[in-house]
Amino acid sequence: MEPILRTDRLRVEYPPSRRGDPPKVAVKDLSLEVRQGEVFGFLGPNGAGKTTTMSVLLGFLAPTAGEAYLFGVNVRNPIARQRIGYLPELTYYYRFLTAEEILRFYARLFGLNGVEAERRIDRLLKLVELEHARNRQLKHYSKGMQQRVGLAQALINDPDLLILDEPTSGLDPLGRMKVREIIQRLKQEGKTVFFSSHELGEVETVCDRVAIVHQGELKVVGRVDELVRTHQANLEQVFLKIIGYPTCLAA
C-alpha cells in the first residue's frame, strides 16, 4: 500500500548567514515512510531539522534535493494538502479575532459553510475546552489557550493526516493528557498522525513508530516496543544514546 507520507532522500540547505560560508544543511538525505493509520513520532534534539522537514511537507520550503509525497502526490502540488491538518509551533493567531471567528475563517478556506461549519466549530471548541472563551479576542488568550486554538484549527477539515509540530508545548499536564487522548481518538478513527515532540514519555505511550533524527540525519526508525527491546532501555535512554550522549551517565 502507498504510504500516506513519504520522503525520498530529502535534503534542505539554508543559505549561509554570511557570504562565503558554506550553506547550512538542515536535513540530509532523509527517507521516511508513514503508513495509513499510524501514529508516528518524529524525534530529535533542538535544531535536528524536524520543523524544516515539516516545512517541506507543507510546501513552505522547496527541498534542495530529493522529493516528498503526501497521499502519493508530490508536495509541490497544492492538491497534496487538501486532506491534511497542520499545527505549527509557536504561532500567535489573529489577535483581533475570537476563537470562533478564527475557526470559521479556516472552515471557509475548506469550503465549509453554514450549519456544518458551526457544528464542527462547536465540537472542536468543546474538544479543546475553549467553549467559555469562544467570544473573546485572542489577544486576551494565554499561551496554552492559543495552542489549543491551533489544535482546533488543525482539525477543522476532519483531516486524514495530521502533521503536528510539538502539539503539547505550552500546555499544562491536563492539557497534555487531553492532547494524548485526542491523538489516540484520531488513531481509533483511522487517521494518521505525524508529530514531533520532546516529551519522550508521552511519545512512548501514544506512538506506534518513531524516527529519531540528529543534525538532519535519520538515526533510527522503528516500532517503539522493538526499539526498547533491542536497546534494553526506555525510549529516553535510547534517544540519548543515539544522539551521542554518554549513556552511562544517562543510565
Binding site: 507543507l58 510546501g59 513552505f60 497544492p78 492538491i79 494538502r81 487538501q82 491534511i84 491538518g85 497542520y86 499545527l87 505549527p88 509557536l90 504561532t91 500567535y92 493567531y93 489573529y94 489577535r95 479556516y106 478556506l109 475548506f110 491551533g150 484549527q153 488543525a154 477539515n157 502533521i163
Partner: peptide, 14 residues
C-alpha cells in the same frame, strides 16, 4: 511574524 502564514498556507490556499 505571528507565523499564521503557516497554518494558512497549509490549507488549500495558494
Amino acid at each position: 511574524e505571528s507565523r499564521t502564514i503557516f497554518p494558512l498556507l497549509a490549507k488549500p490556499v495558494t
